[in-house]
Design a protein around this nucleic acid. Structure first.
Length: 677
DNA sequence: CTATTAGATGTTTTT
DNA sequence: CATCTAATAG
């Protein structure tokens, strides 16, 4: 490539970015600090590959989220098209979604039935809960890990590829006494999944690795790609590295991009170790660094660098910028979380007055919970917002109910979904659900069949028969290969009356379900639609303070984890007190290092304005219950040398005058009519 | 057998 | 607060 006349897709890159984008070594590691143009460089590299004649469909792009995949693929395609390239589709997605694709292509080799289902975390926990109960660990008086904890242990064991003993000793020492019982449960869990014809998220990775390592299949798989590019490599775990290594070993060129300072998924058995060991794991690998930051002002970078410097083990990698000026980072110390919510709102509105759209501002926090009070305050002030992270759409009980129906429709062997669906009916608990299920089996041990409704309905209490009959009829009428939207519509109609009855706010929930019908329109089969929901769960739809219109301006609320890879003009980091940030559940040395990186990620999301809030008092319980509170210590990451770089706003200044709610248009009902209906 | 209640308890982050 | 357990009412 002629350096004097760069190709159009390389024009806007600086020297270090261009070198990285055009590197032709078979293994390349790009160590890219926060805001150094990582995405730009990766995009340019893809465009460059296309220009050099690599076929689009022979490029595999692995990213951490679907959103990132879409963005990268679109940008790369756009710049390649501008350069006159046309045609071909880059294969891009998360490890899990690509793994699913591979599993579908090699279903038989993996011993999976047609239309096999993928359990999300909630389903997996339900299945584990079922086994836990059957094996008699439910009410035996002594403490035994609950289903979500069981899933944590299981998942961590699989993803770290360590023996159960080691995982228990290092991460779940309080469960060590249950070693045998746990092993038994996990074995049964595997057997049950096989019988039900389903796999979980971890199985997707296990399956892909098995395929990639197979003499014949793996070779064919690798032969279909020339280049594999992996984004956010600091957050891969051992399984994912195995997959990538297998492909590379069979001839695919490998590009990894990441920043060890931003490794924040240790709880998922990811480790920055893999990015640091990249050069020795892939001999001959070329390493390129990007250190010039284009995102943030100097004061923000200074704070971020000072926090990063607290990590003794981290690479000395100081970000620099030649942008001068910028307002100092503000450290706000409100009296308590109520005052914090006020302080955030004041600053958000002030920035908006100065022309900064709400969308250009974000509030970041350690846990979804941290934003509770703020959400109330935003709602009170009519400030629209969207919350990412925390509760997901798929976690809502009624959505799970419908998904259970969809799953049963394309896989009658899925007993966990049957179980859930049946308990939606009035007067049906675990015992009756089980009896109905037995009545639905054509023969003992066989898969339940919705067509056997008459016998099953006899097991239901009278009140549940109408709804039960409607649901079973809708299931019996549904074919697995049917148009997903039509099937979803029918099932929603059948399930809706039961949902409306089951939940206090039933009407709202039914409305939610109708929205799913629209979502089904894009998918080819029901099974595919459900899998899409699992692998790319829409983030909470319920978190709107005002009705959502996508073109409307709204403030972004997000966990730091969900904010990864994103940036805003102004960032507000709330609840930065010790015990929360770092979380004291993560207080061992490795844990604190990871929390520090998390804090670093939060700091480096900001372009021009950054505010860090440390409430002096915080409540142990969300609100109202009692007055128990702790005295907040500022996060240990806000060490004196860090604070010295910030502008402090003391409590008295941080506390706005007591809020005066607008009372002008309020109405208070004094009628007692509702008592006499 | 299920629904309802009271009381205890735990409690992140995500594909 | 949400979720689970145990005890009791229907």
């Amino acid at each position: 490539m002629d350096a004097n006349a760069p190709a159009p897709w390389l024009e806007h890159l600086n020297g270090e970015q261009r070198t990285a984008a055009c590197e032709s070594a078979p293994a390349l590691l790009i160590l890219a600090g926060a805001g150094t143009g990582k995405t730009t460089t990766l995009t340019a590299r893809v465009a460059d590959l296309l220009a050099r004649g690599v076929q689009a469909e022979r490029i595999l792009l692995l990213t951490f989220t679907r959103r990132a995949a879409r963005e990268l693929v679109e940008r790369a395609r756009a710049s390649a098209e501008r350069a006159g390239w046309a045609g071909g589709r880059i294969l891009g997605g998360t490890f899990h979604s690509i793994a699913h694709r591979m599993a579908r292509a090699h279903r038989a080799a993996l011993g999976l039935p047609e239309g096999f289902g993928v359990l999300d975390a909630g389903d997996a926990a339900d299945l584990l809960a079922m086994i836990r109960e059957e094996l008699g660990h439910a009410g035996e008086g002594r403490r035994f890990p609950r289903a979500p904890t069981l899933l944590d242990i299981y998942s961590r064991t699989v993803n770290s590829q360590l023996a159960l003993d080691d995982v228990l000793a290092s991460s779940f020492p309080w469960c060590e006494g249950h070693r045998e019982a746990l092993a038994l449960i996990f074995r049964e869990y595997g057997a049950r999944k096989r019988r039900m014809g389903v796999i979980d998220l971890d199985d997707l990775l296990l399956g892909w690795r098995a395929l990639a390592r197979d003499e014949v299949i793996g070779r064919a798989m690798a032969a279909s790609f020339d280049h594999v590019l992996v984004d956010e490599y600091q957050d891969v775990n051992g399984l994912q590295v195995d997959v990538v290594a297998a492909l590379h070993g069979a001839g695919c060129a490998l590009t990894a991009v990441g920043d060890d300072m931003q490794a924040i998924y240790g709880f998922r058995a990811a480790s920055a170790r893999y990015i640091l060991e990249f050069p020795s794991a892939f001999p001959g690998a070329v390493v390129r660094r990007l250190e010039r930051n284009y995102r943030s002002t100097a004061p923000i970078l200074a704070v971020a660098n000072a926090v990063a410097a607290q990590d003794a083990a981290a690479h000395a990698k100081t970000l620099w910028t030649d942008r001068d000026g910028g307002s100092p980072v503000e450290l706000v110390e409100p009296r308590d979380e109520v005052a914090q919510a006020h302080a955030v709102c004041e600053r958000v509105l002030e920035s908006r007055e100065q022309g900064m759209e709400l969308k250009e501002q974000a509030v970041l926090f350690r846990t979804g919970h941290d934003a509770d009070l703020l959400e109330l305050e935003l709602a009170r002030r009519d400030i629209p917002f969207v919350k990412y992270g925390g509760l997901r759409y798929l976690d809502a009980a009624h959505v799970k109910d419908l998904v259970a129906a969809l799953r049963v429709a394309c896989n009658p062997a899925d007993e966990v979904s049957w179980f859930r669906l049946l308990q939606l009916l009035e007067g049906v608990g675990p015992v009756r659900a089980r009896r109905v299920l037995e009545a639905l089996r054509p023969e003992p041990g066989g898969a339940p069949d919705a067509a056997l409704a008459p016998a099953a309905l006899a097991q239901l209490p009278a009140a549940a028969r109408t709804h039960g009959a409607a649901i079973l009829a809708a299931l019996a009428a549904t074919r697995p290969d049917e148009e997903p939207a039509a099937a979803t519509e029918r099932l929603v109609a059948a399930v809706a009356p039961a949902v409306a009855l089951r939940y206090p706010d039933g009407a709202v929930r039914v409305g939610d379900l109708d929205q799913l019908v629209g979502g089904a329109r894009g998918a080819r089969t029901i099974a595919e639609f459900v899998t899409e929901l699992v692998l790319d769960a829409p983030s909470s739809s319920a978190a709107f303070a005002v009705p959502p219109h996508l073109d409307e301006d709204f403030l972004v609320l997000s966990t730091v984890h969900s904010a990864k890879g994103l940036e805003w003009e102004a960032v507000h980091i709330i609840c930065a007190y010790d015990g929360n940030f770092p979380a004291d559940m993560n207080a061992d040395d490795d844990g604190v290092d990871e929390e520090r990186r998390l804090f670093y990620v939060a700091l480096t999301r900001a372009r021009r304005r950054l505010h860090v809030y440390v409430p002096a008092r915080f409540y142990h319980r969300a609100r109202g219950v009692d007055d128990a509170h702790g005295l907040g210590q500022a996060s240990r990451f806000l060490a004196p040398d860090v604070v010295a770089l910030m502008a402090r706003t003391r409590p008295s200044e941080a506390d706005p005058p007591a809020p005066v709610p607008a009372m002008g248009d309020r109405r208070v009902a004094i009628s007692a009519d509702e008592l006499f209906v």
